[in-house]
Nucleic acid binder design. Structure first.
Lengths: 190, 190
DNA sequence: GTCTATACCTTGATAGAC
DNA sequence: GTCTATCAAGGTATAGAC
């Protein structure tokens, strides 16, 4: 705590987070992380036992990030609909990188599904965090079957992310997210 | 044409197709393909110049596969709505592998977005094939803005695939596809 | 056309000096 | 805590015999 090593550890996690997003987990090497951080490859093993452990720390970091994002949505608005809309709006800030390399959560979970079932389970927890928060707000807003509706909202956002990335089409991403918002309003306001 | 080598070439493509789907392109090695086909690693270079070339052939093969699937949908039904529903129904046949490793088109396109922009463009052509076919049928059915509606249909299917794979939830996949079908009916029958 | 052997590189991971 | 040197394994790709 507060020791010098914590800085290096955090710098490794931050660089890995970025690289896992833009290049993917399997396509990111220790050399890549070393070049960005300036920390020699061998040193990584002082902070982490394996590459999987780095990914675990990255997922923890992302969980914290989205957790704070949801907290921000709750501060920004007091009503469930407004909070859900605030969440959808925040995603627009990342539209450039979504079009370029996909959704950080969705693309990671999809990649891990193919060869890292244990870590896929861990990355799924970010989805569960979002799903439960959405469900809570939908439920408060009086939406029946809020569990399924929460999954549907995430699915819609994932769908537009995948297609926007596939077609490199930023305007489609915006149109798709706009449809999610209008779907939300219709769902809650009847 | 008809020479012995064509058999080996096709066997390589078929094995690679399967492996790229279940393990991903980058995580599939020549050794893996060699073990399945029994063809020595070195021989691959008689049929293909690089690994990328194998992927190119796999994408061509998948394009042909989906092209034939769409033709089947046209044979199975004469009305646009029925044809679109037939298409959605056919995807249910692959629900097990979608839950396990994701949609073959979506997950490949997402993977390639991160480190193979040239091949991502090629894999996108499968999406374009589907989109244009869906658009044609929606248009014939009298749907206004059929272009956007076709993208929306693909996006919805991709979304439920990503979430069903993330949560390993086959029943969610079925529910999601059922919603796509009812959305289609509402869209066309007003 | 088919096969073996192998070159050459990068990978994740380890050992041990400082 | 930090660093360098290095390992063993596995990757794509090549050379050349048959």
């Amino acid at each position: 705590m507060g020791s010098k090593g914590d800085n290096n550890r955090q710098r490794i996690v931050d660089a890995a987070d970025q690289l896992f997003h833009t290049r993917g987990y399997n396509q990111t090497s220790f050399r890549d992380i070393s070049e960005i951080t300036g920390i020699p490859r061998g040193n990584f093993y002082y902070y982490f036992k394996t590459k999987d452990d780095i990914l675990g720390a990255v997922i923890d970091s992302r969980t914290k990030f989205y957790s704070e994002m949801l907290a921000q949505c709750e501060t920004a608005a007091s009503q469930p609909l407004e909070r859900l809309l605030a969440f959808a709006n925040m995603l627009e800030d990342f539209s450039d990188s979504i079009v370029e390399v996909g959704c950080p959560i969705g693309s990671l979970t999809s990649e891990l599904a193919k060869d890292e079932p244990h870590l896929q389970k861990k990355s799924r927890e970010i989805f569960e965090l979002l799903r439960d928060w959405i469900e809570k707000n939908l439920s408060t807003a009086g939406v029946s079957d809020s569990q399924n509706a929460a999954m549907d909202m995430l699915a819609r956002m994932q769908g537009v992310s995948v297609m926007a990335c596939a077609f490199k089409d930023k305007s489609y991403l915006h149109r798709g997210l706009e449809e999610v918002r209008s779907w939300l309003k219709k769902l809650i306001l009847n």
